[in-house]
Simulated scan of single mutants.
Amino acid sequence: MTSHPPAADHLPVYDGLVRERGDVVAEVREVAEQALDEARRGLAGHPVSSPGPRRERAAG
């Protein structure tokens, strides 16, 4: 008998890591979107602001 992988919306190992370490994937996605936005503005000739202070994750 073969076991079936968990449904995509229920990944207990990933959920546990998110609770323990934070949602790194979401954070990376946010930073990537900001970088793309700044690149688009820069390529369009608009001034690009310098990066603000880096957010620190809360220790859990």
Rank of each mutant, 00 (worst) to 15 (best):
R54L: 04
T2E: 08
G42Q: 06
A39M: 11
A44D: 15
G52L: 01
Y14I: 10
R54C: 02
E20R: 08
R54V: 05
G60F: 07
V13H: 10
H10M: 12
L36A: 15
L17V: 03
H4W: 10
S50I: 04
G52C: 01
T2H: 07
R21C: 06
Y14T: 08
Q34W: 07
S50V: 08
L11V: 05
G16A: 08
L36F: 14
V25R: 13
E27S: 12
A8E: 12
G22D: 00
S49G: 11
A44Q: 11
V28M: 10
H10Y: 13
L43D: 13
V31D: 10
P12L: 01
A39G: 05
S3N: 07
E33H: 07
E27I: 06
E30G: 09
R40W: 07
P47C: 06
G42R: 05
G52Y: 00
P6V: 01
R29I: 05
P51I: 00
D37S: 12
E30D: 15
P53Q: 11
E33Y: 02
V13L: 14
E27R: 11
S3C: 05
D23K: 00
P47V: 09
R57F: 02
A8W: 14
G52K: 04
P53C: 03
G22A: 01
D15N: 10
L43R: 12
L36G: 15
E38Y: 02
R29E: 14
R41I: 01
G60I: 08
S3E: 06
R21M: 05
A58K: 12
D9P: 01
A35F: 08
A58T: 13
V24P: 00
A44E: 12
E33C: 05
L43G: 14
G16C: 03
L17T: 03
A7D: 14
R57D: 10
V28L: 13
P12N: 04
D23E: 04
V18Q: 00
R21E: 06
P12A: 03
P47A: 12
G45A: 05
R54I: 04
M1V: 08
G22R: 00
E27G: 13
V13M: 10
G60D: 15
E56I: 03
R54Q: 08
A26N: 08
R41A: 15
G16N: 07
V18T: 01
D15V: 02
G42A: 06
D9N: 12
G22V: 00
S49Q: 10
R54E: 10
